[in-house]
Design a protein around this nucleic acid. Structure first.
Lengths: 389, 389
DNA sequence: ATGAAAGCGCTAACAC
DNA sequence: GTGTTAGCGCTTTCAT
């Protein structure tokens, strides 16, 4: 049976074209402003004024022109517009990892807000998040006359290095996702540090003391921030040694395992953690996929969640509510990150039109939300109650 | 503690601009072909020829021009190009549901292939998959001079109705994702029918007889195809009544429940199915999310998977391998759907340049693959062996 | 092999 | 209020 399951391609020529594409594509060429003008008995300029909703057109003329536009189904050419006004009403979006939940949500938000404001997003996907061959993207975007750029590639390693070198010569405004505040740059992000704190504090509040951490790759800004949230919460609660050398507290390194965001690394992470500290009672896991790996492994090892081991994840992927048990996790307003970044970018574009130096970059940080489900709460009734509140 | 978890926005003005955007944006305006020409001591046409790799330029001249281009970091304006040649090298992509795994994979494939071929995708997201206000998208795309259109909105209800009315007047080629073959249209899709058969046959091969089906919404083409695969496999195996009235076989309706793609509907679906046919031994679930809901509910009801109930999903989302137990499912080559659709579209663009009627639309169907994991195999050793093969 | 001129479709600047 | 003129930056004839 398995031999049925190839990945080959079947190909058929479809039946003959019914009507097919319009053959007279040349004669039916795009209606232009000239034809509209002629038809309406006005100059192209007047049509242009109507198109752009300028006030200095007589009511009657406007009405007539509008009527012709509609009748001819005229659509102004953006290319021509873009050329003559120097504005394209398109935005360059450079993203990474849109097959993952977070980035794709953010992209949705970007598109939605852009559409509402009359912009179209040109999509570029980075192959390697850490790559520095940024110039290609930028050049391409600029050659397409984008009015602004959204850099939605996660901050990894020093893949922000190019900013130092090239940002100042960018002729259009740009905003950045998921990276720490930087002077002179507009950044839009979720407060991952707060997320880490919320998750950890929630476990602390449940009375857990030995709380492990499985991080994402530490060259990611997000992973570092979440880890920092855990560390500060733990330190403040007096649960780990803070580096000041309280000999009576366990060293934080005992409780930290470095994952890769992938479910497999959650599996491995739990094993490591348990080897090192069999007394771990709870774990804050850097994302939901790894949490899934942890839960599967816990089950394999005969550990019950949350009785033997409490778990909190990060992201609130749609599946998280259907894990077994349902996963407590930190939800990020990523759609809003997308929306906000477009709003901010268009603001900059508007201001920058007059004077690029007047832009006043902003750091916008949106707040995550703790979603409490069963995986972290010993008393089920409590969980349900809390979740419903 | 929960009161900490608002969704409000924190906003800080960033520190004063370090260097800020280039203030002399006007003086530093984009380099144009003229400046390159002047600098290289040739006419603009010659530069244009070099840009377009035309043969009729002397080696030496070409070298010199290239040198200047590089030195000035010149990027030709796509807007101007687009205007004068009537080609934009951009593609309109209308998609839906990119926060889900499938569509986002396809989108990745589109972007990748487009980039390789020198095209940039303009992204449009449908709000309502079934909406028929298609005209807005099309108009906008056309006004932006896209060279072709990829329609990646799933076929739902009669949301293909517009095609009848408007397709023939489209001035550019278009390809469609996830819909059945249609005369005169290029479609690229995965053979969902085959997927349904593979999944069901696999269960039949395991010796299961009472095999339920939880479908996606039946107004989706994909859901119907998958269901059809189940029905044919079941009928051919003589497990359900085929409509020819074999009184000794159970009617198919007994085993079908209609879901919504959402995990919650898997939950509900299982309950319904068990109420109706407590003898169900296995279920083919229309997607992995619903399968997750089924598995959670099965567990709540004390059913062991696969001992008491075997499950096969559809999609092979990344989490599926980490469900408990790992989920047998049908993997779709959606990235390839994206790539292929761009390849096909650009082919059509090329051909259509000369003669739109010569395009010869094609139906391209890619094959899904059954991924066998533990959720459908009574004997674990067998599953591992099969999966590894 | 190279250049001059015209034009793609629109808008900005200036008449009237 | 409306029309005229001149580009935007590139490619396409058509000369040479």
């Amino acid at each position: 049976m398995l031999t049925l399951t190839g990945a080959l391609t079947g190909l058929w020529a479809a039946r003959p074209i019914r009507k097919g594409y319009n053959r007279q594509v040349n004669s039916r060429k795009r209606i232009t402003i000239k034809q509209v003008a002629k038809e309406a008995g006005v100059s192209t300029q007047t049509v242009s004024r109507v198109l752009n909703d300028r006030p200095d057109v007589a009511q009657e003329t406007r009405r007539r022109v509008r009527e012709v536009i509609k009748r001819l189904d005229y659509q102004p050419s953006q290319a021509a517009r873009s050329l003559s006004r120097g504005l394209s009403y398109s935005l360059g979006v450079v993203a990474y990892g849109i097959e993952f939940f977070g980035p794709s949500r953010a992209l949705s938000g970007i598109e939605r807000q852009a559409a509402e404001l009359g912009y179209s997003p040109l999509l570029y996907l980075a192959r390697e998040p850490a790559s520095n061959d940024v110039a290609r993207f930028i050049d391409d975007l600029l050659s397409r006359n984008v009015d602004g750029i959204i850099w939605a590639v996660p901050e990894i390693d020093d893949n922000r290095g190019w900013i130092e070198a090239q940002f100042d010569s960018l002729p259009v405004p740009a905003v950045f996702h998921s990276m720490g505040p930087r002077p002179g740059l507009s950044t839009i992000c979720v407060d991952n540090y707060l997320g880490g704190r919320l998750a950890t504090q929630h476990l602390i509040d449940q009375g857990y003391c030995h709380i492990g951490l499985i991080t994402g790759p530490m060259d990611w800004w997000e992973a570092r921030e979440r880890a920092r949230g855990w560390r500060d919460a733990m330190t403040e609660a007096g649960l780990i040694e803070s580096g000041l050398g309280q000999a009576n507290l366990p060293p934080q390194q005992d409780f930290i395992v470095y994952g890769s965001w992938e479910a497999a690394s959650g599996e491995e992470g739990l094993n490591q953690l348990l080897d090192r500290r069999p007394d771990v009672e709870a774990i804050f896991v850097g994302n939901d996929q790894m949490a899934l790996g942890v839960m599967q492994t816990a089950r394999r090892r005969g550990l019950h969640i949350p009785q033997d081991l409490a778990i909190v994840g990060f992201d609130d992927i749609p599946e998280a509510a259907y894990f077994w048990p349902p996963l407590t996790t930190v939800s990020q307003p990523l759609f809003d990150v997308g929306r906000t970044s477009v709003a901010e970018l268009t603001r900059m574009i508007k201001v920058g039109r007059r004077d690029m130096s007047a832009i006043e970059p902003q750091t916008i940080m949106l707040q995550p939300k703790l979603i409490i489900r069963e995986s972290s709460v010993r008393d089920k009734a409590a969980a349900v109650q809390v979740a419903g509140s």
